[in-house]
Design a protein around this nucleic acid. Structure first.
Lengths: 226, 226
DNA sequence: AAGCTTCTTGGTCAAATGACCAAGAGCCTG
DNA sequence: CAGGCTCTTGGTCATTTGACCAAGAAGCTT
């Protein structure tokens, strides 16, 4: 992506893997190109030959990550016709990618903000492709009648993606829950909610239930600043 | 916290506000102490007098952020007896803090990993206090019978906190949804789930439902909202 | 106003960093 | 096997960075 050499013989992935590892461990801002070069088993000069700048490295890395997660999501969902099942498989694919040990996704989560200008735009374009993938899944679920019709799909998509991405923050290698188990549990929270069976509303719409409580005392942020 | 001078006369918050702003805009790793000093309206030497290192600055910042969000959460929930309502108010408080424009919380979200050793430990201790606050709210909801008894509270807490924190990533200043509205919608997703009313399970436990999905009887969906 | 503490000034310093390059080695193709 | 690629070597270079400090200003207490 960065260079358009007629024919490149080196393995791009080795370098990107090394970069992903270093960026994840140290953070993009604190990482140095020298560290990346060393992790890739080459001298800084060689790395510079491949990537003219640190940011070019980050850009390629993020494009790889976004392309991958989208591919994995599509593949996971491909052969399931049922919208609810597709949703569940999508959650699984996302979490399995995120927790697979692939450093790319961590870097994507933490350091995408470090890109500037056109690089940022390119990543945002890819990101919205992934978001569209999820919106499609959710609309399917609504249209099929499985999900309530009165959902704010965009908000719901962010809700779910946020919950999933956060798993990268708290799950340790030693956690007994597998990614698939977490995904399935999340799916059940999303599908059924927390409410006990005997507390489910009858005819009342959910929307009213959510809104009808009067606003509590609105407390402005405390601890005056600025 | 960092220094234990007998009596300090300067306003700690001015410096931390400046640091928060710079760290948020540039990322902790890429930010420099010089930038922070300038934003605080002082020379680098003066900043060094107050904070011996960049990391000490970050530590104080994170302790302030965590202390604040916990205070805000407790205050929001304080006078509501109903567990469901307490949950909703807790969500509101969290999102209102996060989206209030206070830079602290962004820095907390993105850069807590940059701390090392004892500083990291101190932040983790505070973080688990905040997590315990949420676990209490959730357990109340379960014990009161409002929520299903077969919930993995820890997983659920991470689920919700993740969804909320992600809002910081996507919401722009111009977004018409207020933090409180987002919180209420999230609450309704959490409480009721996505499932259409006529697809709700009968007597079966949700746990079983989560594992054995099948399409229910097809009837037109009822309620709509808005 | 003396005396003490708090904080600022205006620097220094060694180390690190991102970018860069001339020369050469290695390898494929014709 | 010669020519032309691709890639590596082993550096350089101007800046930037975090940390530090001696000396003095400012403010509070008595």
């Amino acid at each position: 992506m960065t260079k358009s050499l007629a024919r490149r013989t080196f393995d791009e992935d080795v370098v990107l893997d090394a970069a992903a590892h270093v960026f994840r461990k140290r953070g993009y801002g604190a990482a140095t190109v020298r560290e990346v070069a060393q992790a890739a088993g080459m001298l800084p000069g060689s790395l510079h030959y491949r990537y003219p700048s640190k940011e070019a490295l980050l850009l390629d890395l993020m494009e790889r990550a976004l392309t991958r997660v989208l591919e994995l999501g599509r593949a996971a969902v491909e052969h399931a016709p049922d919208p609810a099942e597709r949703l569940r498989l999508g959650l699984r694919a996302h979490l399995e990618a995120l927790l697979s040990g692939d450093d790319d996704f961590y870097v994507l989560l933490y350091d995408w903000r470090s890109l500037r200008g056109p690089s940022m735009q390119a990543v945002l374009r890819l990101r919205s492709r992934y978001e569209a993938f999820w919106d499609d899944l959710l609309w399917e679920a609504v249209r099929s009648g499985w999900a309530r019709p009165n959902l704010d799909v965009e908000l719901l998509r962010q809700f779910g993606i946020g919950a999933m991405n956060w798993v990268a923050q708290w799950r340790h290698e030693s956690d007994p829950r597998t990614p698939a188990e977490i995904a399935d549990t999340f799916w059940s929270y999303l599908a059924f909610g927390l409410l006990a069976e005997d507390k489910r509303p009858g005819k009342k719409t959910f929307g009213q239930m959510a809104k009808r409580r009067k606003a509590g005392p609105k407390r402005p942020a405390k601890g005056g600043r600025k």
